[in-house]
Simulated scan of single mutants.
Amino acid sequence: MTTTAKKGPGRGGKREGAGRKAADGATVATTVQITAMVTPAQRGRYLALGGSAWLRAIIDREFDKSV
């Protein structure tokens, strides 16, 4: 029994525009990654509040106050 590898582009792998999109429209090209150490309970609260979209909104709101 002979098997041959599929040639040419196939499914899977890294593709432009692949993956879930951020709820607030942020893209990999317009963001940087940060890391914070939190407890499991705090992580649950963070996710319940909206995760990274919520955090970006809070940072923007607080920054706008100081201007």
Rank of each mutant, 00 (worst) to 15 (best):
M1C: 09
T2A: 11
T2F: 11
T4V: 09
G8S: 07
P9V: 14
P9I: 08
G10Y: 03
R11P: 10
R11H: 08
R15G: 06
E16G: 02
E16W: 01
G17P: 00
G19C: 03
G19Y: 05
R20W: 06
A22K: 02
A23P: 01
A23S: 15
D24S: 05
A26L: 04
T27W: 02
T27D: 01
A29E: 15
A29G: 07
T31S: 15
Q33P: 02
T35M: 07
M37F: 08
T39I: 00
P40Q: 12
P40T: 14
A41P: 01
R43S: 11
R43Y: 10
Y46N: 05
Y46D: 02
Y46R: 01
L47F: 05
A48W: 03
A48C: 09
L49F: 12
G51K: 02
W54F: 15
R56H: 06
R56W: 03
R56D: 00
A57G: 14
I58H: 04
I58G: 02
I59Y: 01
I59D: 08
I59T: 12
D60N: 11
D60E: 14
D60R: 14
D60W: 00
R61E: 15
E62Q: 12
F63K: 10
F63L: 14
D64A: 15
K65H: 09
K65N: 07
K65W: 02
V67L: 12
